[in-house]
Structure formats: C-alpha cells, structure tokens
Amino acid sequence: MKSNIPIPGTLRERILNQAIKDFGTHGFEGVNVQQFAKSIGVTTGALYHHFGNKLELYRIVREEVERRIISRMEGASAVHEEPILSIKAAILVGFDSAVKLNVCRLLSEQDPSDNKDLAAILFKEILNEEMEGTEFIISAGWRASLRNVANGMNIEQSRNVLVKLLEKFN
C-alpha cells in the first residue's frame, strides 16, 4: 500500500482533503501552514508528523490531483484515433475536470516540488512524433487557460479561448 493513500476517516485523510481544497484555491505560496492546521483542528506538529513539511504535503496533493485529471484526459483521448482529435478531447476534459474540482490554481502554477509534467507526458504519448518539445507547449497552453480561471476570468470565456487555440491545430 502506498504511504500517501489515506485510510477513510483518518486524520491523514482529513488533512489531504483540506489540502486539495486549499492548494487548489490558493496555490503553494497562498497556504499558510499554521492557518491550515488550525482550520482542520490539528497542530502543526501533527501535520508535520504525517507529511514532514509543507512541500511534501503539496507534492503528494499535486501528484494525486494531477493523476486524477490525467486519468480522465487519457480516457477522453482514447476515443479518437487521430492524434490531434485526441489532444483536443484530452485538453477539454482536463480543463473541465480542473474547473469542477476547483484545482485550477494548483495545476496552473509552477510546481515547486519539480514533479514531472504528467500532462506533457500524456501529450507526447498521443502525438508520438519526432518534433521534440511540442508536448510542453501544449501543456503550457492548457495550464495557462487554467491560470486564467484561477485569476478570475470567466470560465466559459477561458474555455472558449482554449477552443480557439485548439482550432489552430487543424
């Protein structure tokens, strides 16, 4: 069993669920550890007992959220055989999922734990082309649309900008 999978009803699960909400809304820099611990009724010592430090908690949360979104994106991309249609489906499902889960800020910010860009890895698998680096440009566009939402842009407007960008791929 992975050590970061919480047992339902445990303090660890409460911490992770609240961390997804707080990092999703405020990002890494916007979460104060003392206020976070207080909001769930624990001490910072208890928090550090389970996760070591803020960066480790963030790393676990970011990885978990990103894996959830990427899983949905993989499912959407698998419906299409043509790579460009697969990319478009994956991006739109990823955008909609991030908005629904309220994790736009989390997924749009630079990852301070320097995890791999799982979206770029997915896009590279879909494209399967020799033009190295395209996957990072596509991932950056997707993440920029999420940042627009996190910064207050109307969701539909941000999604429409993303759709217009994707139309350029034809």
Rank of each mutant, 00 (worst) to 15 (best):
I70Y: 02
F51Y: 15
L122I: 09
S158M: 02
V42F: 06
F95Q: 07
L16I: 15
D117N: 14
A140G: 14
L47H: 09
S145D: 02
F36K: 03
K21P: 00
R67H: 12
D96H: 03
M1Q: 04
R147P: 07
V99F: 05
S113W: 09
R143V: 13
L11T: 15
I69V: 15
D114T: 03
S139R: 06
G45R: 11
F36N: 01
A78G: 12
V42T: 06
A90G: 03
E167V: 05
L122K: 10
V103A: 13
R14Q: 12
H80Q: 00
A150R: 01
E29N: 11
F36R: 04
R105C: 09
L106W: 11
M153R: 05
A46E: 14
L92C: 01
G133Y: 06
G94T: 08
T10L: 12
G24L: 09
S145L: 04
Q157A: 15
P6I: 09
E56A: 14
T10D: 12
Q110N: 14
K124Q: 15
A140T: 13
I70K: 04
P112L: 06
K21F: 07
L127I: 13
E125R: 14
N154K: 12
K164I: 05
I60V: 14
A120F: 01
V103Q: 08
I137H: 08
A90P: 00
F23R: 03
L165C: 10
Q110S: 15
E167P: 03
Q35M: 13
R105A: 09
G24M: 07
A90I: 01
I87M: 05
N53Q: 10
L11I: 14
A119E: 11
P112C: 02
K2V: 12
I70M: 04
R72P: 01
L92Y: 01
E64H: 10
F51A: 12
W142S: 08
I126H: 07
V61G: 08
E82Y: 07
G133K: 06
K164T: 07
R143E: 14
D117T: 04
H49P: 01
Q34A: 10
V163H: 07
V42L: 05
V161M: 15
T10Y: 12
H49W: 09
M1F: 06
A98E: 03
N170W: 07
S113M: 11
V33Q: 10
L85V: 00
E64L: 09
L127H: 08
Q35A: 15
K168I: 13
L166C: 13
E109Y: 04
K164W: 01
N170R: 11
L92E: 02
I87L: 11
N115I: 10
E129D: 09
P112S: 04
L85A: 05
W142V: 10
V79R: 08
K164V: 03
N4Y: 13
T43H: 13
A37Y: 08
L57A: 01
F51M: 12
V61F: 08
L106N: 09
A119W: 01
I70G: 00
K124H: 14
K168R: 10
A144C: 04
D22Y: 02
S77I: 00
K88E: 09
P6E: 06
V149F: 05
E167H: 11
V163E: 14
H49C: 02
F36H: 03
